[in-house]
Design a protein around this nucleic acid. Sequence first.
DNA 1: TAATTTGTACAATAATTATTAAACAAACGG
DNA 2: CCGTTTGTTTAATAATTATTGTACAAATTA
Lengths: 187, 187
Amino acid sequence: MSEDKYLQELEEARDVMISALAQTMVIYGVTPSVGRIYGVLYFSEKPLNLDDIKDEVAMSKASVSNGLRELLETEMVIKVWKKGDRKDHYIAEKDFMKNFLNFFIKKLRQERSLIMKANEQARPVLEEVAAEAEGEPKKIAERDLKSMNHSMEYFDWTMRLANALESNEIFEYIPKTTQEENDKNDK
Amino acid sequence: MSEDKYLQELEEARDVMISALAQTMVIYGVTPSVGRIYGVLYFSEKPLNLDDIKDEVAMSKASVSNGLRELLETEMVIKVWKKGDRKDHYIAEKDFMKNFLNFFIKKLRQERSLIMKANEQARPVLEEVAAEAEGEPKKIAERDLKSMNHSMEYFDWTMRLANALESNEIFEYIPKTTQEENDKNDK
DNA sequence: TAATTTGTACAATAATTATTAAACAAACGG
DNA sequence: CCGTTTGTTTAATAATTATTGTACAAATTA
């Protein structure tokens, strides 16, 4: 079989993998186009500049620029400097584990912060009514305060989870490799 | 202060909390409207039927029906039967921890399944080229196979994480309550 | 069985979100 | 400096996604 035929097959295989990669990112709320940008960078053996990427994903310069910003913000892509070239170059952060943890920790913190802000607004009102009112209003206020306190326990837990993820403590409990894999590698 | 004034204040406080709840669900890819349906059910002291919810969130019957289906699928809402009433009634699953775990485990499995399917398609091609070709194609195929194997380690880890979450094993490592809280409750 | 109630499917519309072309600003090289 | 290259902003357009009204089917009652 000719070398060209092989290269063509490889490209098709890559496209399959890039599409799947993009789709998994869609699960987590990323646009398919942005996912494809990441996919292209993931499989590229060298850093790519904006124009390279634009050609690969067949999108406008502006879209690629936007997509890259999003990927840089979540640290899934890193900007690298290339000697003797004015253009910015980009590489994918290939460590899925790191990407996953980054992404996820961010969401947990964001969630908590949103609820905390709302609670700070609502709590004084509820406490006032619980203290001053009687009958139905008092009952409702007390009920809602209880709900609120209960949900705080949840956020307390997610924050401890986030910290365990961030500090890599999680890997003490759920190791990166299983014992079998260690044995295999030790051989 | 009058009882009505208190009730009005309470309602305003609730709206703040419902909005925040809806917004946090938006973080995880749920529509604000669907989030509000959940919020309304979360703060309702009794099961609500479709028409009740429709009035509360000011949406069409069809939209509420769709939204409820989504919430039922992710098990954030439960359908309950109410004696002497033909209408379906709904209550919110209030255990955030349970909701979080359900949601998250689903995503992890979905992610893995997507990538696995793509890999099953791509792997035979890569292996064939790695075995039969020479030079550049062979190098690329080997490189991609290596990437693929490396990513399998990640999915192996996320599956072990998912299992630890599903079996509640995770709470051995990251307890639901801290020691301080236990002390406080023991008093 | 006919009449009514209830929830859902579907096709049309509205709203949101992504994408683009074009104008612009910043950085550089001559 | 002035012209050129590079990447971003912006306002308009395109594509996607959510929402709705209507029609319908299933279940219920009289």
